[in-house]
Structure formats: C-alpha cells, structure tokens
Design a protein around this nucleic acid. Structure first.
Length: 807
DNA sequence: TTCTGAGTGCTTTTT
DNA sequence: GCACTCAGAA
C-alpha cells in the first residue's frame, strides 16, 4: 500500500488500465507449461475456475489457500472477465494484503499497481469514506482515532456528564462500543437492556454523544470505518449502484474471521454481480471474542443461495501423524462444517509422532524445551524453523529467562505495535496538530509534553471555552491568550506554543516532510526530553523516533504518511538472524514451522478458564480450534508440554493435564519418558517415582484413557458420518450447530481423567501433597479432592497428586 | 509537578 | 506476585 493511492478519484472512471490484463494474457496461459494452473490439484483448480456466482472455499490448514486466491485473480484477469480495478479483494491484515499483491504480481508478471481495491477491510472502508465523506457527515480529510484516543475521548464525555469514572471505566465502555459497532449497531439499534447496562443506564446516550463528538472533531474510530461504510451504502442507493457496476468480482480472505458489519458490507456489495468468493476455514476461527461470527461461514449457503462449496483437504504441510492428531482433536467440535485433512506424501520411516511430555513446573518446562531445541539445532534444524506457541503471553517470560541464560537466540512476535508506543504517538500528535489545527486530541496530548507549565487547570479552561464557543482548542487558545485569562508564565508558555505551531505550519509547503518532522521534534524540545531522560528505555525510544522519520521517507508527503500510519504501519519484519520464534497461538495463525513446541496444555490455561466460564461450549470449541491451529502449524515435529504446577496470579496451583491431550488419538501420539512431572527437581529422569505411578507415566496407561466421554462422542460422530476411507476422521455431515447448547463444560471437566473405580480417598483422610505438604481431605468429587492443607489452605487437587499419610 | 502508596485485575489482538 | 493506574501529599 502506498501513500499515493488515496485521494485519487481516477479509479472511478470507466477506463481501467489494460496493462495488467494484457500482461496476464501474455505471461500466464492457463493450460500451457508454466501457466498459472500448472501443478494445481483438482479441487484448487475448481476453486480457481468457478467464477460465476457465490463460492465458498473451505480451505483447511496448509491446503494452498493463498495460492487459490491469487491464482483466481490471475484467472479473472487472463480470461478478461474483469479489469484489475474491477476486482475487490479484502483481507484482514496488511501483511496478508501485501502478500497477496506480491503473489498476484508474480503470477501476472509485474507489480500490481492496477489493483486499487485490494486491501484490508479497513483500508477499503477508508477509501470509500474519503470519497463520499460528506454523505456521512464528515470532511474527506477526517482523522482516524486509535483505541487510545478513543478512550480519552470517552473519558472526557463521562466526566462531562458527571458520572463516576471509577464505577464506569472508559475502557469498559470502549469495548462495549466496539462490540456494538462490530455488530453493525448504531445508537438507536442497541437493545434497551444493553443500553441500560452501561454508564448508569445512559449507554445509548453516551454512544450518541460520542458519535456527535467524533463528527465535530471530523474523526472516526476503527469501528466506524466499517459501520459508516455500511451506512453510506445503505442510505445512498446511487453510490451503492456505482460500486455494483464497478465490482465484477469480490474475493474475501479468512472469511471465518468476519464480523457482522463486514458481513453486511460484503452482502451489500455482492448484490451487484453475485460473484463473491469467500475463502476460509471454520476450524480456524479463533477470534470470536473480538466479534468474529463463525456463523457467517457456517451459514454461507443460506446467506448466499446457490453458493458452491469447495473443500480443500489435501494438505501440503504436515506429516500424517500431525494431521491425524489435529483432525482427531478437531472432530470433537460440533459446530463445524466438517472436513478432514489428508496428505498424499509418502510417510517417511523416521517420521515422529506428536510428542507429549510433562514437567514439574513452568521453569522445568522451559528448561526441557530449551534442551530439546538445542538437540534439534545440533541435528541441523535452523532456529528460524522452530517456534514456541503459547496460549497466553505471560508464559513467554519463562522461556525468555531460560533462553537468555542458556544463550539460545529468540525473538518474540507480537507485543506492543510500533505506532502504539508512547513516543511514536506523541510525535504523531505533533505532526497531526500541525497538519490539522482542529485535532483537539492531538493538541491535548502534546500541549504539555515536554513540560511547559501548562497544567490540567489551564487545559480545562481552554476546553470549557472551546466548548462554549464551539471552536477547537487551538482557536480557543488563540482567543484566550489575547485576553487576561492566563497570567504570567502560563500565558507566555501558551503563546510560545502557538507561535511554534504557526511557524511549523508555514514550513509545510516549503520543506521536505522528513526534515520538517525532525525540526518539529527538535524545536518542540521533544527529542531533548528523551535525551535528558536517564531511564533505561530512553535510548530505545530515541531510536524509535529515528525509525519513524526513516519510515516517513517512503511516503510522498506528511498527509500521505498520516493517512496510512494508523492503518498500515506494521511492526517491522524483524531481523534476519537465526532465532527461535516465541508467540501466542493467535499470532501464529497463517504461519508454519518445521518444529513447533506447544507448552502449557493444562486445564485452566488451555483451555483457558475464562473461555469456559464466559463462553460455555462455544468457548471450549474455540479453544479447541486454537489447539488445532497450534498443531497444524507444524510441518514435521510437534511437541506438547504440560506441567503439574503453575503459578497463576501469584500463587501456586497444581494443574491437571488439558482435556485436549485426552482428545488426541493414541496412534499418532508418543509420550516422552521424562517422568519428572511428579518426580521432583533436577536429575529425576529416573523411573523410580517416590510418589507412585501416575497415568502419564506410560503409554499404556495413557491409551487406556481413550475410553472417555470426549472420545466416545467423537467415535459416535464418526459412525454417524461413515468413514471417508482416507484413514482420517470424519465429522458429522450436517452441521449441528445450536445456540442453546447446554453448558456442560464444568461437568465434563475432569471426567476424562478418571480411572474408573472407587474413590481413593474419603473425607477426613490424612494426605500428603508434593507441593502443598500435609493436609486433611474435606470432600471428594470423582478424582477431584478438596483438601485443607495444614500450610497452604484449602485447594482442589486431583487424587493422583496425593499420597495417603498416616496421622 | 512529581513522588508515593493504595487499589486493582490478570487471555487472546487487528485495524 | 506483579505491573499498571490514579488520587493525594510534598
């Protein structure tokens, strides 16, 4: 995405460039050797060639999804069904958009400058809104607020309303607001009950006030980029008709992640040509918590009547063991369309099964994974091919600590994004206020950064005046500085500040934008502020500011830069050095690694307790999909760990192996003989376990656990659907998705770990626990025992952790 | 304005 | 158990 592509209206005329299509014809003949269809399997080919009408491509992990999408575009161009500018192709992330652009370019030969409508939902939303801003009450140079600005704005409104901020935190309202916008609800549309549940029953009013304030500021938030776009199309049939004429083909990536507004937007646009092709995988839907509707993909055939559904199940990534494990696990989900990955590749003799290993606690887990990584490294695996995928980011720390001491290079993927850092946001606020004097949020952010002696009181005075007069803060300052309102130092400081802003503004047309940016940061004293800061991260922040200026160089002007910064600024691709990647399961979606470590498979952490408590069965199924995503990232080796003890919120908890372990098929899994889960620290790799055998000590015992409810359910599902004959597991042919499913999560919890038989303990028994010491049994529930420990207080533990102790 | 102590909450994240 | 936020005092 480049800065030059906004604001130009040329793409709306009827003379699209022929360049790409012509080159596509020349370079890519479908059938010929080297043609773009070469080497595609029949399903992929069908997905590429079925151009007319709605199509849903259910593309399992590693089945060549991106290839299908890009080849489809090439095919549309080569068959002259549309010009590049008549194809709408949407993705979720900039990264995906960039990749698609590159790959279409490769297929078609040349850079795809002619595809103006390939981009993220948000960037395309912006594009539409800029063009028709006045129709939704904006000016076309509107600002895009990020979450931080959003929260500050809400805070102000809550304060102005005299509502207790403590009781109704702005952050909480911001997420409600996001939720409503994701669902396509405007203030009038939100259900009464929900409206009342916020800010003292004033949820609806606050939402409306917030929107009104945005219009005054000539700003939109991320949610608006889509919601306002939908409003625009709904309320202006002529505009919609124009887009109908324009978009001959619509392509959507990661359809399982779309939310309601995105769905509504797509539906409106697809009314034109009906040629909408959505690619996705219901089994990889892991963003329900941020508004994604799995229903969108599950109901596709009903939403788009006559839709053709094409399944891509031939996997080119992983070994048969990994696919077998993943397929069997995901077959436990009920809300799915059902597909089973398989591989054509011959099985190698030395192919590893999926490993499961245990550790005493997270420290040992990190240590043994580190050892394992070094072993792979000695065996010739580059560290770049190895990843550790965790459920929650707090797990990363243990690995970082360990790798620092043992000298394993690593990189953490994720974390705060570049433009979210305070110094970057401050710098941007300076640039914004220079370019847009009415940007009050930018004004407030930097008016006293660095300190100029303009405190809260002064800012409030400006605010009150500005609001009373209906003028932005800059203007309010101008007017009040001319009066006796401010005295002495404050007045001088404000006047100096205004002078600086004016001076910088005058320089905009005269100076190269990167130089001006540097000048602003220097003259404002902002750079000096960090230079004088003696804290450890100050040098890093200065470095970030330099990086910011460097990245501005890619844009033609300050406006172009600001336009795209909040939407497009990715964190940089990272250094080239050989290092292990550490990231969350969520950020691993779409990636692949030769060797994948999956630590922390314990009840409560994975599946996460909150997902179960708040999401019930649907929550559990989403967790299971996460596990599926994790497993299918691995090409050749997949190693799972669980610990017997973990520190959660500061206190130690003994933990139970994840139910997902029980849901792996024994035939594809191997239990690693570390035996140290219950054996204490250090050199306890011996087989003698002072605390007795546990069910994870041997493969046999492990296998005997497959007589569990989860397993039985999966088997029943298999029987119902009949075998596919590919050695894989098949799932119900009919999606049996229901909203009113009973939430049995609690009851199912430990069931699978129970070795049938009489309870080992009774209330009153004296017992001993490795971690918590001696105690007395208070209650017994299956194999879960509640114990009053003499030292550690009352805990609920699994009986296999307990030893009978004499009185 | 800056420091300090109390209070809180604590999955996942893109745009 | 820790990291972050915010109100109130120095």
């Amino acid at each position: 995405m480049t800065a030059s592509q906004n604001h130009d209206d040329s793409d709306f005329d009827a003379s699209p460039s022929l360049g790409i299509a012509a080159r596509a014809m020349a370079a890519a003949r479908p059938g010929a050797a080297g043609g773009y269809l070469q080497g595609m399997n029949p399903e992929q080919r069908e997905a590429v060639e079925t151009l007319d009408g709605p199509v849903l491509v259910l593309a399992g992990a590693g089945t060549g999804k991106t290839r299908v999408l890009t080849t489809r575009i090439a095919h549309i161009l080569a068959t002259r069904r549309a010009f590049p500018s008549q194809i709408l192709a949407v993705t979720f992330t900039n990264k995906a958009a960039r990749e698609m652009k590159e790959r279409v370019g490769q297929l078609v030969g040349g850079v795809v400058e002619g595809m103006p409508w390939l981009g993220t939902f948000h960037s395309i939303g912006v594009r539409m809104l800029r063009k028709h801003a006045e129709l939704v009450g904006l000016k076309s140079n509107f600002t895009i607020l990020d979450t931080d600005d959003q929260i500050r704005l809400i805070k102000q409104l809550i304060q102005a309303d005299g509502i207790d901020e403590k009781r109704w935190p702005a952050r909480q309202f911001a997420s409600a607001l996001d939720g409503w916008k994701n669902k396509g609800l405007r203030p009038a549309d939100i259900p009464e009950g929900e409206a009342r549940a916020y800010v003292n029953g004033r949820g609806r009013e606050l939402y409306a006030a917030y929107q009104a304030r945005l219009k005054v500021l000539n700003a939109v938030d991320f949610g608006d980029l889509l919601l306002e776009a939908v409003t625009l199309l709904r309320e202006n049939p002529d505009v919609l008709a124009d887009y109908h004429k324009r978009f001959r083909f619509i392509l959507v990536d990661e359809y399982q992640d779309t939310n309601v507004v995105q769905y509504l937007w797509l539906r409106l646009l697809a009314q034109g040509s009906h040629n909408i092709c959505c690619v996705g995988d219901d089994d990889q839907s892991i963003y329900g918590w941020r508004g994604a509707e799995v229903d969108n993909i599950l109901r596709y055939e009903r939403d788009f009547p006559g839709a053709k559904v094409i399944r891509l199940e031939r996997n080119y990534r992983s070994t048969a063991h990994i696919l077998g494990a993943a397929s069997h696990l995901i077959a436990h989900n009920e809300a799915r369309l059902g597909k089973t990955l398989f591989t054509d590749l011959p099985q190698a003799d030395d192919e590893d099964k999926v490993f499961v290993a245990s550790a005493w606690d997270s420290e040992e887990e990190a240590r043994s994974i580190g050892d394992e990584i070094e072993r792979y490294q000695r065996g010739g695996t580059p560290l770049n091919d190895i990843a550790i995928l965790v459920r929650a980011s707090f797990q990363m720390r243990e690995f970082e600590d360990r790798f620092v001491t043992s000298g394993i290079p690593y990189r953490v993927i994720g974390g705060p994004r570049f433009y979210e850092r305070a110094e970057i946001r401050d710098a941007l606020a300076y640039f914004r206020i220079v370019m847009q004097p009415a940007d009050d949020l930018a004004f407030e952010r930097i008016v006293n950064t660095p300190r100029r002696g303009i405190g809260d009181t002064s800012v409030r005075t400006l605010h009150d005046y500005g609001r009373a007069e209906g003028v932005p803060l800059t203007e309010a300052t101008h007017q009040l500085v001319a009066t006796e309102e401010f005295k002495g130092k404050t007045r001088t400081a404000l006047r100096d500040f205004l002078d600086s802003l004016g001076r910088w503004r005058d320089l905009v047309p005269a100076m190269k934008h990167t130089e001006l940016a540097e000048l602003i940061l220097d003259e404002s004293g902002y750079t000096a502020m960090w230079q004088n800061d003696r804290s450890a991260d100050a040098p890093g922040r200065l470095e970030n500011l330099k990086e910011l200026i460097r990245s501005m160089d890619e844009f033609e002007s300050m406006e172009g830069f600001l336009e795209h910064i909040s939407l497009v600024m990715d964190r940089d691709a990272g250094e080239q050095l050989d290092a292990v990647s550490i990231m969350t399961l969520h950020s691993a979606k779409g990636l692949e690694f030769d060797t994948v470590f999956l630590p922390g498979w314990e009840e409560g952490l994975f599946p996460h307790q909150r997902a179960l408590d708040e999401g019930g069965r649907a929550g559990l199924e989403e967790e299971r999909r996460l596990a599926y995503v994790g497993l299918t990232r691995a090409k050749r080796h997949c190693l799972i760990w669980f610990t017997s003890n973990r520190r959660i919120h500061g206190s130690w908890q003994s933990s139970i192996p994840s139910r997902f372990l029980d849901e792996l098929p024994a035939g594809h899994v191997e239990i690693k003989e570390t035996g140290s889960a219950y054996g204490g620290y250090g050199s306890s790799f011996g087989r003698q376990n002072p605390y007795g055998a546990s069910r994870f000590d041997s493969v046999e015992r492990f296998q005997s656990n497959y007589d569990t409810p989860g397993w039985q359910r999966a088997q029943k599902a298999q029987k119902a659907a009949g075998s596919t004959g590919r050695g894989g597991f098949s799932s119900p042919a009919q999606p049996s998705y229901g909203r009113g499913q009973p939430k049995l999560i609690e009851g199912e919890l430990i069931a699978k770990s129970v070795v049938e038989g009489a309870p080992k303990f009774a209330a009153g028994d004296r017992v001993f626990h490795v971690k918590f010491g001696p105690g007395s049994v208070a209650a017994v529930d299956g194999n879960k025992v509640t114990v009053d420990f003499d030292k550690a207080g009352q805990k609920r533990v699994v009986d296999s952790f307990l030893e009978r102790a004499g009185n």
